[in-house]
């Protein structure tokens, strides 16, 4: 067994998850591929969203994959960094907005 939880080489094996459940695996990858096709959003825009979300969910495989995908699409590093800040802002905001819940509870319990 690997001594670390993440191995970059495992990204290439992603498709293998279908081997243990062909039906659900195929459904997932069909869905995944459809999501990233050009639609109301361009494939380029979707790639940037995926990069931001990859950081928010802190998935090292996704970060590798969508940094490379962005380079291939001609996305520039400034755009990539801005996208990550959007993710960071939402994640930070999501933490902070719960401060209102804390304040509500504090006030309710306090005389």
């Amino acid at each position: 067994m690997s001594k670390t939880y993440y191995d970059p080489a495992d990204l290439k094996k992603f498709g293998k998850i279908s081997e243990w459940d062909e039906e659900l695996g195929s459904k997932f990858f069909d869905y995944y591929n459809s999501v990233f096709e050009e639609g109301a959003l361009t494939a380029r825009e979707k790639s940037l969203i995926a990069l931001a979300v990859s950081h928010v969910v802190q998935c090292p495989y996704c970060i590798d994959a969508y940094t490379k995908d962005g380079l291939e699409r001609g996305i520039e590093k400034e755009e990539m960094m801005e996208a990550i800040h959007v993710g960071a802002a939402i994640k930070g905001g999501a933490t902070l907005v719960h401060g209102v819940q804390m304040m509500n509870k504090y006030n309710k319990l306090s005389m």
Binding site: K68, L71, R73, G74
Partner: peptide, 11 residues
């Protein structure tokens, strides 16, 4: 760099 080109039309 060490990556492949993508869709020619989009580029």
């Amino acid at each position: 760099g060490a990556f492949l080109p993508t869709n020619q039309q989009a580029m």
